[in-house]
Amino acid sequence: MLRIFDIIFSFTVIMLTSPLMLLAAILVRTKFGSPIIFKQDRAGLNGEVFQIYKFRSMTDERDAAGNLLPDEKRLTKFGRFLRATSIDELPGFLNVLWGDMSVVGPRPQHASFLEFYSKRQMMRHYVKPGITGWAQVNGRNSIGWDDRFELDVWYVENKSFWLDMKIIFLTMVIVLRREGISAAGHATMPEFRGSQLTVPQND
């Protein structure tokens, strides 16, 4: 997507949703405490690592040994609402303004996934990652990693401004319908450790 469009679109979204983001920040602080923003290393263009920003949607509850409880135990009703409405993703538009991400592109995954991608799957890093993408409007978290990454590669091979416009429109429809939020049996998606081999993760 054109950089100028990314800047204009993300700036507009931030301005229009700033009251909502302020309210979300206050509620996150009240319900979860600090920090308000969840930060995590993700792989971007050409596999370069950057920090993604999202509103925190989980507690930091731990077991007797000090280990974080599973995602489904820490994801509260309020956290599920943030994810279902995609309000938790709004701080990501700052990543777009700063140039780490685009409005449309393959969703940035955890940096640790890089060593497990096949050569074809690595093609998803030929473009900047996006707030939304082709995989997000074709199943989101309800489809497996292999299918999801194949959709990402298809996007890279067929990238165009008009395809991006279509994805943005479909994203708005999906957000309103709250579709594909979680994978079966997980709070979001299982962690990727190579094709057909997955274990639970934090997203």
Rank of each mutant, 00 (worst) to 15 (best):
G47Y: 12
L2G: 05
A187N: 09
V96R: 06
T85D: 02
M15H: 11
M58G: 08
F5V: 08
Y53H: 12
P19K: 11
S57Y: 02
N67M: 08
V175D: 03
Q51G: 13
M58F: 04
L82D: 06
V104I: 06
R74I: 12
I168S: 03
R177Y: 07
V104L: 00
A184S: 11
R124P: 11
P70L: 10
A111C: 05
L68E: 03
I168Q: 04
K77W: 08
H125E: 06
A64T: 13
G139H: 06
M1H: 03
K119V: 15
K54S: 10
L82T: 02
R178V: 09
R42K: 13
G185F: 02
E72C: 09
E115S: 14
R83Q: 08
S34G: 10
G194W: 02
M123N: 15
T188Y: 01
F9P: 07
D152L: 00
F113Y: 13
G79R: 06
R148H: 02
S118G: 12
I8N: 06
W162I: 13
R124D: 12
D60A: 13
S182G: 04
V13P: 09
G66R: 11
N46K: 14
R3M: 00
G92L: 05
T76A: 05
K73F: 05
F32P: 08
F81M: 00
L197F: 12
L75W: 01
L90Q: 04
S195D: 09
N138L: 03
L75P: 08
G130W: 00
D152W: 02
F11A: 14
F192K: 10
A84C: 08
Q136T: 06
K31M: 12
R80H: 10
D63E: 00
P35M: 04
N202H: 01
A84V: 05
V137A: 02
R62V: 15
R80T: 14
D71W: 09
I8V: 15
F9L: 00
V199D: 14
R29Q: 14
V103A: 02
M58S: 09
T188L: 08
Y126A: 15
K73W: 01
K77H: 04
L69V: 10
N95Q: 11
I8T: 14
V103S: 03
Q40G: 09
T17P: 03
V199E: 15
R148S: 14
I131E: 09
I143L: 05
Q196G: 11
M15K: 11
L69G: 01
V127R: 07
P19D: 09
N138W: 06
D88Q: 05
R193F: 13
T198N: 14
M172R: 07
A183F: 07
Q196T: 15
A65S: 15
G44I: 05
E61V: 06
K31W: 01
T132C: 05
K119C: 11
K159R: 13
F149E: 01
R120L: 10
A111H: 12
A135N: 07
I4P: 00
I168W: 01
M122N: 15
L22V: 10
Q201V: 12
M1D: 08
I143Q: 00
R42I: 09
W98T: 15
L16C: 14
A43W: 06
T12K: 04
V173Q: 05
S18E: 03
E191R: 13
M101S: 14
I7M: 02
M101D: 10
